[in-house]
Design a protein around this nucleic acid. Structure first.
Lengths: 155, 155
DNA sequence: CAAATCTCTACTAAGTCAATAGTTATTTTG
DNA sequence: CAAAATAACTATTGACTTAGTAGAGATTTG
C-alpha cells in the first residue's frame, strides 16, 4: 500500500514549486529543490522530467533555467500527481476508475473483497482529490510558524 | 498504492475459510480453495504457509488435511491480514503506527505532506480494522443472493 | 503400505526501484 | 561570438521484489 520513494520525491519537489510559485515566469533550479528537500539531484532531474510530460511543470533551459508549475497550485490536486507517478490510487485495479483492470476472481460483480476495496479507494480518492498543492503550501506555512509538536494537533 | 497479487490471494483464500468455518476442527483443502478462487495451487501453498506463521490459520496434514482459521472469523480483521502480507497500511512509513520509519525530509514534524498522508492512513486503517472476515463472509452471502448489479448499491 | 495431503527449501524469469553516467542542447554572460 | 552554466535526453546498472515453479520430504488416513 506504500507510495514509492519516487512518488514521495515528486510531491516534495512540487511542494517547493508551489511555495515559490509566482504569476510571472520565475523558475526554481533543480539544485535548489534538491538542497531544500534533501533529494538526490540526478534522480530528481528524471522525476521532474516525468512531471513535465504530465504537463504538471514546465522548464526553462540555460543558465537561468529551472522548473515551475504549469498551473496555479490551487488547480493541482494530489490525486493527479500520485496517479501519474504511481498509477492507480485504488488498492486493487478492479475498483480503479482511471486504471481499471479485470481481476482473476470468479465473479467480480459479487466479490465481497471488491466491495470493501471500493470503500477504501473512495476514502483515499476523497482526500487526494480534495487537497491541492496550494493547500499543502498553506499547511507548510502554518506548520513552520507553530513552535513544535504541531503535527499531532493538525490531524 | 496497490496491494500485491499475493495479498489479494491471501484475502480471497481467507474468505473461503471464513465462509466454510465451523466450530469443530474441519479443514478445507488447498486444492478446494485454489479451485474456488482461481488461484495457482503451488503459489497458494506458500501464502497459506505464510498465514500460518502469522497465526491466522492452522493446518492439518495427511489425506484428510487442509487449512482452517485459527480464530473465529469475527475476530480477524482485514488490517491484520494485509499488514502481515504487505507491511504498512500507510502510504508513507513516516506515518505508520506499526511500521514507522523516519523519512528523508528535512523536518518530519512540520512536513505538510506527512500531515495529509496521516489523514489518508487513518482513513484506510479505519476501514480495514472495522471489517472482519465474518463481515466479508456476510457480504459475500448477500451478494450471491441478489440477482445482479449488486455491487453498486452496496457501496 | 499406499495415496493424498501439507511442509520446506530452492530456484527463476521478469519486472521494478533508485539511482548513476554520459552526452547533447540551450541560454545567458563576458 | 565564444565560453560557461545549466537543463534535457538516453542508456545502463545493481539490488531487490514479485509471481510463480519444482522437487523432495513429512504426516495422516484407509
Amino acid at each position: 500500500m506504500k507510495l514509492s520513494v519516487r512518488g514521495e520525491y515528486a510531491l516534495r519537489a512540487l511542494l517547493v514549486l508551489a511555495r515559490d510559485f509566482q504569476e510571472d515566469d520565475s523558475v526554481v533550479r533543480i539544485q535548489e529543490i534538491s538542497r531544500r528537500q534533501n533529494i538526490p539531484k540526478r534522480f530528481l532531474e528524471q522525476i521532474l522530467n516525468d512531471l513535465k510530460s504530465a504537463h504538471l511543470v514546465e522548464s526553462k533551459r540555460g543558465v537561468a533555467g529551472g522548473y515551475r508549475l504549469r498551473r496555479r497550485p490551487e488547480r493541482i490536486h494530489l490525486a493527479e500527481i500520485v496517479r501519474h507517478i504511481e498509477g492507480p490510487l485504488a488498492p486493487v485495479s478492479c475498483v480503479s476508475e482511471k486504471y481499471y483492470e479485470k481481476c482473476s476472481c470468479p465473479d467480480e460483480a459479487r466479490c465481497a473483497i471488491r466491495s470493501v476495496m471500493k470503500e477504501t479507494r473512495d476514502a483515499i480518492v476523497t482526500i487526494m482529490e480534495r487537497v491541492t498543492l496550494a493547500d499543502l503550501a498553506e499547511r507548510a506555512r502554518k506548520l513552520e510558524q507553530s513552535p513544535a509538536v504541531a503535527l499531532d494537533f493538525v490531524i
